[in-house]
């Protein structure tokens, strides 16, 4: 079986700074894979390198068995889409939801855009009432739903999620996580999800990779974390930190 995403000894260098130091990973089709780490660990850079937003210095990336060159073609973006962290920054401030959703359809020449936009909005639980609103007329959670709708409207098989809920309130986070799980089940999507929160990754993913300073710390299954079967000190620290403050 070919992997949905296969990353082989990937190096990313920004102006001499090595943001990724030879990271490899393999995500199976339909799997949900998590990347955990603190800021500067390179977890977001890995996502950006896959979609072509970060300069790859060496190493290889393959999606659905196809090795990617330095340029991504249109067909690639119909397979892979991404949801950004900041719902306030990822929607164009001068465009209505309708325009935002129309754009990918226009670029890829879909004919039945009316129906698709309505269906996409229904799917993320927004409905027709939101279609002609501007981003500033939406709450953070609603914006993130629009961003998810935009990512799904091209019917990709792989969704990259860059801390999709870290800017949201806890109660809204639960709603968005539930939505993501639901669309994944319905569309049999492959997820590659980045978060600094171990609990979110264990909740959402089957396997995960812990990252630090642009490198891999260890690969785990979510069940390993639940049973606290971790081998590296760094992961143990993260686990302890996620329990909250302990007075000494």
């Amino acid at each position: 079986m070919t992997s949905a995403i296969s990353v082989d000894r990937l190096e990313v260098i920004f102006d001499r700074f090595r943001a990724l130091k030879g990271v490899s990973l393999d995500v199976q089709p339909g799997e949900s894979f998590g990347l955990v780490g603190e800021s500067g660990s390179g977890k977001s850079t890995l996502l950006r390198a896959i979609v072509g937003l970060a300069p790859v210095a060496s190493g290889g990336i393959a999606v659905n068995g196809k090795t990617l060159g330095p340029r991504r073609d249109k067909a690639f973006y119909r397979e892979v889409q991404m949801v950004f962290q900041d719902p306030y920054g990822s929607l164009h401030p001068r465009q209505t939801v309708d325009r935002l959703l129309q754009e990918p359809l226009a670029i890829h020449g879909f004919a039945d855009s009316e129906k698709r936009i309505e269906r996409a909005l229904d799917e993320v639980g927004l409905g027709k009432g939101f279609r002609f609103r501007y981003a500033h007329q939406l709450s953070g959670g609603q914006r993130q739903r629009v961003a998810i709708a935009r990512a799904l409207i091209l019917e990709p098989s792989i969704l990259l999620l860059d801390e999709p809920t870290s800017a949201l309130d806890a109660s809204v986070q639960a709603e968005v996580l539930n939505l993501l799980e639901e669309v994944r089940r319905r569309r049999k999507l492959t997820f590659l999800m980045v978060s600094h929160d171990l609990a979110i990754i264990t909740h959402m993913c089957e396997r995960l990779m812990v990252m630090q300073n642009g490198g891999t710390v260890e690969n785990l299954a979510a069940s390993d974390l639940v049973e606290r079967r971790v081998t590296k000190d760094y992961t143990r620290n993260l686990l302890r930190a996620s329990d909250g403050f302990v007075r000494v």
């Binding site: 937003l53 073609d73 973006y77 991404m82 950004f84 920054g89 990822s90 890829h108 935009r150």
Partner: peptide, 13 residues
């Protein structure tokens, strides 16, 4: 460099 322009890039525009 804003995310909303990146998002359009990722649409293949």
């Amino acid at each position: 460099n804003s995310d909303y322009i990146k998002a359009v890039q990722l649409m293949g525009a």
